[in-house]
């Protein structure tokens, strides 16, 4: 568990620089130096007058399983949104009138699809459902250009 800074909220005052026992808050890129931050310390989080500091966790809880029928219905909706994104992208590519509108619709459909994915069991990268999907995808290692190393690294990094 370490601190992180929302740079948009930080008013560059002050107190986190004074209070941090390790200097982790004082960096040239504005972000906390995670390597120096002490696990669970949170002094800067409580000191910041702008609520710009928060804690990022290393472990996340296992969520209760989702209802199978809700997930199936969301999967169907996810497919529909993904299809609409592709139609929008194709229309934007054709470049005729409305190309920009089609691009906006495709972008919006991606956001809608992501929301369905989130509620249909893929909210947490560390979850069993995400790991199950990644493990299944390993079966495609023979496909040309398939980024199998990316999946192997993710399974290694995410717990």
């Amino acid at each position: 568990m370490h601190a992180a800074r929302n740079i948009a909220l930080c008013t560059k005052d002050c107190l986190c620089l004074f209070i941090c026992p390790t200097g982790a808050t004082d960096t040239e890129n504005g972000q906390i130096d995670f390597a120096k931050c002490l696990d669970g310390c949170r002094l800067c989080v409580d000191a910041c007058p702008s609520h710009a500091l928060y804690l990022v966790f290393d472990r996340y809880p296992v969520k209760p399983d989702k209802d199978v029928a809700v997930v199936s219905a969301l999967d169907n909706l996810l497919e529909s949104k993904a299809k609409q994104e592709l139609i929008g992208a194709a229309l934007a590519h054709e470049g005729n009138g409305g190309a920009k509108l089609a691009k906006a619709i495709a972008h919006s459909d991606r956001v809608l699809a992501e929301d369905c994915a989130r509620e249909a069991r893929y909210m947490l990268p560390q979850s069993n459902q995400t790991r199950k999907l990644l493990t299944e995808l390993l079966g495609r290692r023979g496909d040309p250009g398939f980024p199998v190393e990316a999946i192997e690294q993710l399974l290694e990094l995410l717990h």
């Binding site: 995670f34 990022v56 299809k83 699809a113 992501e114 893929y122 947490l124 990316a150 993710l154």
Partner: peptide, 26 residues
């Protein structure tokens, strides 16, 4: 198409958790 959206969603989730390596892989 759905897998692309699942992966960008998970990539954004990794960004929020300050895990740039995992975000890049997704």
């Amino acid at each position: 198409g759905a897998l692309a959206a699942i992966c960008t969603n998970l990539s954004k989730a990794c960004d929020k958790q300050m895990r740039p390596t995992e975000a890049g892989l997704f």
